[in-house]
């Protein structure tokens, strides 16, 4: 892309001006949308700092006055919240790491290897996604009890070490990675494991970061499975701190909002940390426009 310097200069400036204008329009639109997406989020945080009287108000107050911490104190007093966090952290981290490994390996096979029955097996994987978890819950619980893993960390973790969702996600992303690098590596005698670890995984960092975000979020928020598989209070997880306040006749909205706000913090932190990898221009920017 080299031609006479003056022409490039003129079009480049015009392009930059247009760019700024487009950026400004996009920015304004995004800011307008912002209000509608975060209003419920703001509402949750602000009502966690309100008294029952304020929450019961017909018109929500988005800036509580006066501010009160009593809901957080009540949650801390009534629930072993630190223990819940420890359990959730252990479970979610192990599940996330395990899924990164199992799903990326299987995705490599589905996206890059040629073997008999590949499409049939993949269709089988996809097919199981359709059956809702509400109906496999009880068969799975019976399996876990058969294995005597109920009321243990193993029971909380084992069913989620593998995820069809993550496998599918990574397979789709691997398919968008150009084969050029691998072809070169293969000529240099690289085997599949080397291609997987040295080429595919580094190139797939945005996708892997996405898997971390979504898997961590899903296992952190997982509610029904821990509820069913755990009896001991010492093994309960964070989502149960929110539902603890949803009783038959009365929902304690203040403590519920406080527990909900607290339960979101780790997910937000993981998201903020990971999103920079999601949007990291991947190594292949160097090539392409041939």
């Amino acid at each position: 892309m080299s031609s006479s310097g003056a022409v490039i200069h003129r079009t480049a400036r015009g392009r930059r001006l247009r760019h700024v204008a487009v950026d400004a329009v996009v920015y304004v639109l995004l800011l307008i949308g912002l209000l509608s997406v975060i209003l419920p989020f703001v509402y949750m945080v602000s009502s966690s700092l309100e008294t029952a009287v304020q929450i019961g108000s017909l018109t929500p107050q988005f800036v509580p006055s006066p501010l009160t911490w009593t809901n957080y104190q009540q949650v801390a007093r009534e629930l072993p919240i630190a223990r819940f966090y420890l359990n959730s952290a252990i479970v979610s981290i192990i599940i996330t790491v395990a899924q990164l490994l199992t799903a990326s390996m299987a995705a490599y096979a589905f996206a890059r290897l040629r073997f008999r029955g590949r499409s049939t097996l993949f269709a089988l994987y996809l097919g199981t996604l359709i059956i809702p978890s509400q109906v496999t819950l009880i068969p799975n619980y019976l399996i876990v009890r058969e294995l005597h893993w109920h009321d243990t960390y193993a029971g909380l973790i084992a069913p989620f070490v593998v995820s069809v969702f993550s496998t599918f996600l990574l397979r789709q992303f691997f398919l968008t990675i150009p084969t050029d690098y691998e072809d070169a590596a293969r000529i240099d005698g690289a085997n599949h494991w080397q291609i997987y670890t040295r080429i595919i995984l580094p190139l797939a960092r945005p996708a892997l970061a996405t898997v971390v975000i979504l898997t961590f979020l899903a296992s952190w928020n997982n509610f029904l499975w821990p509820l069913v598989v755990i009896d001991s209070p010492s093994l309960k997880t964070v989502p149960l701190s929110v539902t603890a306040y949803q009783d038959q006749f009365a929902i304690a909205w203040g403590p519920l909002m406080a527990a909900a706000t607290l339960s979101l913090l780790p997910v937000l932190i993981v998201y903020v940390l990971m999103q920079k990898y999601v949007v990291e221009g991947i190594a292949l920017s160097g090539q392409g426009g041939r």
Binding site: V37, P40, F41, Q275, V279
Partner: peptide, 15 residues
């Protein structure tokens, strides 16, 4: 902004 637009997906359903 990226965090804000992700917020609805993670906000606890009950709230």
């Amino acid at each position: 902004l990226r965090t804000a637009y992700f917020a609805p997906f993670i906000t606890t359903l009950a709230s």
